[in-house]
């Protein structure tokens, strides 16, 4: 079944906070690239990368915008690294109702890094000339059948445990009719 295997390029942006100089060029180019028409305007508040910058405490953390969440988390996280306390939720990538980060400043619509779709290289990486941001690509084989039969069985079993086998059978039957 080798023809069912697909090649997928996985891009990982590596962030070396020790190399960051806080220039925010990454924010500049991201917001400019995503303007429409492309490059027609600039506004770091629209960027999908945010540099958390506090020079007096030597904090330089570029954070990428991730998924949008409808509800905020029930709890919060707060890190202390090397004796330095970081703000609540600082490392979180979500565009979430609890804060302004990763939202369009005017409409409030969520922002998400799309790896600069259509470009050879993420532009924030290209504009970060001090190599605080670099990109690594790897190819991965992706199976069509991503879930193995055993895994499926475990999953179903847990559902049956929870809801009873009868209910499960009804639902599967209804789903098959729809198809």
């Amino acid at each position: 079944m080798s023809e069912d295997k697909k090649k997928k390029i996985i891009k990982t942006i590596k962030i070396d906070v020790d190399k960051c100089n806080g220039c925010r060029a990454c924010e500049v180019i991201c917001s400019s690239f995503h303007a429409s028409p492309k490059y027609s305007s600039n506004n770091p508040a629209r960027s999908r990368i945010r540099v958390i910058r506090d020079p007096y405490r030597d904090l330089y953390v570029p954070v990428y915008a991730g998924e949008y969440t409808v509800a905020e988390c029930a709890g919060r996280d707060k890190y202390t690294i090397d004796g330095k306390e970081y703000d609540e939720c600082l490392f979180c990538r979500a565009s979430c109702p609890s804060r302004d980060a990763f939202k369009e400043p005017d409409s409030g619509l969520p922002l998400k890094c799309d790896m600069c779709e259509g470009e050879d290289e993420p532009l924030c990486v290209k504009w970060c000339m001090v190599d605080a941001l670099t990109v690594e690509e790897r190819e991965e084989d992706v199976d069509e059948e991503e879930v193995s039969p055993e895994e499926l069985e475990i999953g179903l079993e847990s559902l049956a445990d929870k809801y009873g086998i009868e209910k499960l059978r009804d639902i599967v039957a209804r789903m098959s009719e729809k198809d």
Partner: peptide
């Protein structure tokens, strides 16, 4: 010298954060 730092949108980082023991950090 803690770090070489730049101005807005410039890679040249010609400033620095300076921390002399016992004193607050400045640039």
């Amino acid at each position: 010298r803690t770090r070489l730092i730049s101005c807005y949108n410039c890679p040249l980082k010609c400033g620095a954060t300076i921390t002399v023991p016992g004193l607050p950090t400045y640039m």
